[in-house]
C-alpha cells in the first residue's frame, strides 16, 4: 500500500465532495416538492392518470438512460436549442440535476403515497370537526403523520440518491466519481482509487443511517409528550 498516493487521492476526490453534496441535497429537495405535487394531483381522475404514468415511466427505466435522454436526447432537437430552456440544458450540471430530481420524485411520491394511506381517517375527521381548513389539515395533520410513516422508506431513498449522483460523471460532471474516473485513466491504479471513493460514500451513507435512526426514535409516538428525550 502506497500511503502517500492514497492520502493524496483522498484529498483529490474530496474536491468533488461539494458538487456531490450539492446535487444530492438539491435533487432531494426538488424531488420532494415534485413528489408532493404528484400526490396532490392524484385527487382527480386525470391527475391520477398523469401521476401514475409519470411514476411508471421513471421507475421502470434506468436512471442512466434518463440522464442520457435529457443530456444528449433533448439537445438533438433544434427547437429546444432555440428555446429559453437551452441556457440551462446546455450546462451538464442542470441536466444532471434535472434527471436526478425527476427520478427521485417518482420514487419519493410512491413512498409518500404509502405514508398518506397510513394516515388514520379519524385524525383527519377530528381536524375537520375542530374547524380546520383543507390546507391546515394537510399541514398540521396529514403531512406530519404521513412523513413519520414514510420515514424508514424515505431514509433508504436518501441513501439511494447519494449513490445515484455518481452517475452524473457519465455526462462530464466532475463529482467525486468523475474525479476518480479521471484519475484512473491518468494512473491506471484503479483499485486503490475506487476504494478511496467508495470509503467516502460509505462514511456519508453511514452518517445518514445513524441520523435517520435517531430521527425515527425521536418521532416515535411513544416519545410524544415526554419532556426529556
Amino acid at each position: 500500500m502506497d500511503l502517500t498516493f492514497i492520502s493524496g487521492m483522498f484529498q483529490k476526490i474530496l474536491t468533488g465532495l461539494p458538487l456531490t453534496l450539492n446535487l444530492w441535497l438539491l435533487s432531494l429537495a426538488g424531488g420532494a416538492c415534485l413528489a408532493l405535487t404528484l400526490n396532490l394531483m392524484r385527487q382527480n381522475r386525470i391527475g391520477n392518470a398523469i401521476a401514475a404514468t409519470y411514476v411508471f415511466v421513471f421507475r421502470g427505466t434506468p436512471l442512466l438512460i434518463q440522464i442520457f435522454m435529457i443530456y444528449y436526447g433533448l439537445a438533438g432537437f433544434g427547437f429546444i436549442r432555440q428555446s429559453f430552456l437551452w441556457p440551462f440544458l446546455r450546462d451538464p450540471y442542470w441536466c444532471g440535476l434535472l434527471a436526478l430530481i425527476l427520478n427521485d420524485a417518482a420514487y419519493s411520491s410512491e413512498i409518500l403515497r404509502g405514508g398518506l394511506r397510513a394516515v388514520p381517517k379519524g385524525a383527519v375527521e377530528a381536524g375537520r370537526v375542530s374547524g380546520m381548513g383543507r390546507a391546515t389539515i394537510l399541514r398540521r395533520i396529514t403531512l406530519p403523520i404521513a412523513t413519520r410513516q414514510a420515514l424508514p422508506a424515505y431514509s433508504n431513498e436518501v441513501i439511494s440518491m447519494l449513490k445515484a449522483t455518481a452517475l452524473v460523471s457519465t455526462i462530464t460532471l466532475m463529482d467525486m466519481t468523475g474525479i476518480a474516473r479521471a484519475a484512473i485513466s491518468e494512473t491506471w491504479r484503479a483499485v486503490e482509487i475506487l476504494l478511496c471513493a467508495a470509503v467516502i460514500y460509505l462514511v456519508i451513507s453511514m452518517l445518514v443511517t445513524r441520523a435517520s435512526a435517531w430521527l425515527e426514535q425521536r418521532l416515535s409516538p411513544w416519545q410524544f409528550g415526554r419532556t426529556t428525550p
Binding site: K163, A166, S169, T177, A180, Y201, T209
Partner: peptide
C-alpha cells in the same frame, strides 16, 4: 450489507471490473 448498500453501484461494478479478475 452495510458496505454494499452504502457504495454507489457504478463504483462496485468498476471495482469488480478492474479488481475482480485479480
Amino acid at each position: 450489507t452495510v458496505v454494499l448498500r452504502g457504495v454507489p453501484d457504478i463504483l462496485v461494478i468498476y471495482l469488480f471490473y478492474f479488481g475482480g479478475r485479480q
